[in-house]
């Protein structure tokens, strides 16, 4: 079961997560340990990277119109920033005493905090990206909802002209997202629903066409309407399923299990 739910987050955090757990294990196995080397240079490198992340993070928060991102990102940035101060403390303490126990604790707490804070930050950013895709999906749902007012061939032409680019955008976004996920079950669910939507699109257009013809001829109107509405419902259900799966993380499923 993957720990990180996207390949991007995994590629960024997995190596540092491994290093941090190794340090924790070593610390637990050898409480007093060897003398620590001077960590001033690597700690300064971390601090510089943290300062840059904080700057970029607040720029992102200020330029975004996503209220949830604006709310979620600052605590993660604070966590990272505070953790980097623990590392600076650890480095100072170790310079005075390379065997310092409190310094080792601060080192572990600081590196763990940076890992957790960066993870929270990446998660907040990723969720914001998912909300963008969800908005595109909801746009398609809005178009599907107006199917019932399409009762002339001219309207159908306009309907298809408007629906096609939104549908293409949704397909492209969901397809790209599917490739990003580490959880195979979620990937399969997205692919299956997307395939259904693709297959149902020509069925919908043909259904609307049959409905328009039936309305003009006055024959088989109820059946044509039922068929059209059934296809709209099926497509909407699949898009709702896509939205649901997009918002899932591996953690959700473990919690559910």
């Amino acid at each position: 079961m993957p720990v990180f739910h996207t390949k991007t987050i995994e590629s960024i955090l997995e190596p540092v997560a491994q290093q941090v757990s190794r340090l924790v294990i070593l610390h637990e196995e050898a409480e007093d340990g060897n003398a620590m080397p001077d960590l001033a240079v690597p700690v300064r490198a971390v601090k510089a990277a943290v300062d840059n992340l904080v700057r970029v993070g607040y720029e992102t928060v200020n330029s975004s119109d996503d209220q949830i991102l604006k709310q979620d990102m600052p605590p993660a940035l604070t966590r990272v920033e505070e953790s980097s101060l623990l590392l600076l403390d650890a480095s100072d303490l170790l310079r005075a005493d390379p065997y310092s126990g409190p310094a080792r604790k601060k080192l572990i707490e600081g590196s763990r905090g940076i890992l957790q804070g960066t993870s929270a930050l990446l998660l907040a950013f990723d969720e914001s990206e998912v909300r963008k895709i969800v908005r595109v999906c909801k746009n398609v749902l809005e178009y599907l909802a107006i199917t019932e007012v399409v009762d002339r061939m001219e309207d159908l032409v306009t309907f298809v002209k408007n629906l096609s680019p939104v549908l293409t955008r949704m397909t492209k976004n969901v397809d790209a997202r599917e490739k990003e996920l580490t959880h195979q079950v979620h990937r399969d669910m997205l692919l299956r629903s997307l395939e259904q939507v693709k297959n149902l699109t020509p069925v919908l257009i043909s259904g609307i066409k049959i409905f328009i013809t039936a309305k003009q001829s006055g024959q088989g109107l109820v059946e044509a309407q039922n068929n059209r509405d059934y296809t709209v419902r099926k497509m909407s259900d699949e898009i709702h399923e896509i939205i649901r799966v997009l918002q899932l993380t591996t953690y959700d499923e473990e919690e559910w299990d």
Partner: peptide, 29 residues
Amino acid sequence: EQILEAAKSIAAATAALVKTASAAQRELV
């Protein structure tokens, strides 16, 4: 994109720091 790059830098710098600290400890274990 900038966020991802900045996060990559932090992760790399932290991993390097922790690796240096671990290396000193490992000699004892």
